[in-house]
Simulated assay, not measured.
Amino acid sequence: MDCSVCGKSFDALRFLSEDKDSRLNDDLPYPDHQTLDQGPQTRRVWFVATSLVALLLVAQILYFEGYRLTMQPQLRAHLDKVCATLSCRLPPYRNLEELSVSHSDLRVRSDSGYLFSAVLSNQAPYAQAAPDLKLSVLNFNGQAIAERVFSSAEYLLKPTTLAPEQTVEIRLFVVPPAAPIGGYTFSLL
């Protein structure tokens, strides 16, 4: 007879008895005297296989979620220390939630143009790249009549990186559209 699990042949008749209280005389039920647990060698193979699978899981997490993890303020300090030791480089920190805009305004200038101004502050504990800014001018019905995306190089004179707790003023000159302006919206990208 063959085992349905391991495929080995065995003699099942030698273990059958009509006496309920009879015990087996054989200590090892398999004819080739193999047991299921083969000792330290099997444990080593399982340890190596489990370690490789765990490393593969960590590699997948880093591959698919690595960038997002480096943008977490709680992990960033630890990752900076690890990269300093390993001589690696983290991607530039970028978290729009830690940027705040205040005092935004759109005013008519004397030359019939418009001046958009705002104050942008980096509230992150790390330096981060200044974001792009999307400015939309609206008609009196709230519909966009013109919009443009300004890169950080267009509204900042110096390098486009904001230091921790740095505040900069944004000043953009806007050519008036054909329709009258009733309002504006802007967003950081």
Results as ranks from 00 to 15, higher is better:
residue 50 T to Q: 00
residue 156 L to R: 06
residue 113 G to V: 08
residue 177 P to N: 04
residue 139 N to I: 14
residue 5 V to M: 06
residue 185 T to A: 04
residue 19 D to N: 14
residue 165 E to T: 11
residue 64 F to H: 10
residue 19 D to M: 05
residue 152 S to G: 11
residue 162 L to R: 05
residue 108 V to A: 07
residue 87 S to V: 15
residue 37 D to A: 06
residue 172 L to Y: 12
residue 49 A to P: 04
residue 134 K to S: 10
residue 145 I to N: 08
residue 33 H to E: 12
residue 10 F to Q: 08
residue 66 G to P: 07
residue 81 K to Q: 12
residue 50 T to P: 00
residue 137 V to M: 00
residue 129 A to Q: 13
residue 55 L to E: 02
residue 167 T to K: 02
residue 109 R to K: 13
residue 28 L to P: 02
residue 64 F to L: 10
residue 49 A to C: 03
residue 147 E to W: 14
residue 125 P to L: 01
residue 83 C to E: 09
residue 187 S to L: 06
residue 43 R to L: 03
residue 69 L to Y: 10
residue 189 L to P: 00
residue 62 L to G: 15
residue 3 C to T: 10
residue 12 A to H: 15
residue 110 S to P: 11
residue 94 R to V: 12
residue 177 P to T: 09
residue 157 L to S: 14
residue 88 C to Q: 06
residue 158 K to T: 15
residue 25 N to F: 08
residue 3 C to F: 02
residue 67 Y to R: 10
residue 55 L to M: 13
residue 187 S to A: 09
residue 60 Q to D: 05
residue 178 A to P: 00
residue 151 S to Q: 10
residue 120 L to K: 01
residue 79 L to D: 04
residue 159 P to M: 07
residue 187 S to G: 11
residue 134 K to Y: 04
residue 152 S to A: 11
residue 112 S to H: 12
residue 14 R to T: 14
residue 145 I to H: 06
residue 140 F to W: 15
residue 48 V to Y: 02
residue 135 L to Y: 02
residue 153 A to G: 04
residue 150 F to N: 00
residue 130 A to Y: 05
residue 120 L to T: 04
residue 133 L to I: 13
residue 156 L to V: 11
residue 40 P to G: 00
residue 46 W to A: 10
residue 87 S to M: 07
residue 126 Y to D: 04
residue 69 L to D: 05
residue 77 A to E: 12
residue 100 S to V: 15
residue 117 S to Y: 00
residue 69 L to Q: 06
residue 47 F to H: 09
residue 138 L to S: 02
residue 78 H to T: 14
residue 151 S to C: 02
residue 149 V to D: 03
residue 5 V to D: 09
residue 151 S to N: 10
residue 86 L to Q: 12
residue 149 V to Q: 09
residue 161 T to D: 03
residue 119 V to Y: 02
residue 19 D to V: 15
residue 30 Y to W: 15
residue 29 P to W: 09
residue 175 V to Q: 11
residue 13 L to S: 13
residue 31 P to N: 12
residue 156 L to S: 03
residue 113 G to R: 13
residue 145 I to W: 01
residue 100 S to F: 08
residue 122 N to S: 03
residue 157 L to E: 15
residue 44 R to G: 06
residue 106 L to S: 03
residue 29 P to F: 10
residue 64 F to R: 13
residue 99 L to A: 09
residue 131 P to Y: 03
residue 179 A to D: 14
residue 170 I to A: 01
residue 86 L to P: 04
residue 126 Y to M: 02
residue 71 M to K: 06
residue 141 N to R: 13
residue 68 R to H: 12
residue 79 L to R: 06
residue 177 P to A: 02
residue 89 R to L: 07
residue 40 P to W: 05
residue 10 F to D: 06
residue 43 R to Y: 06
residue 124 A to Y: 05
residue 168 V to T: 11
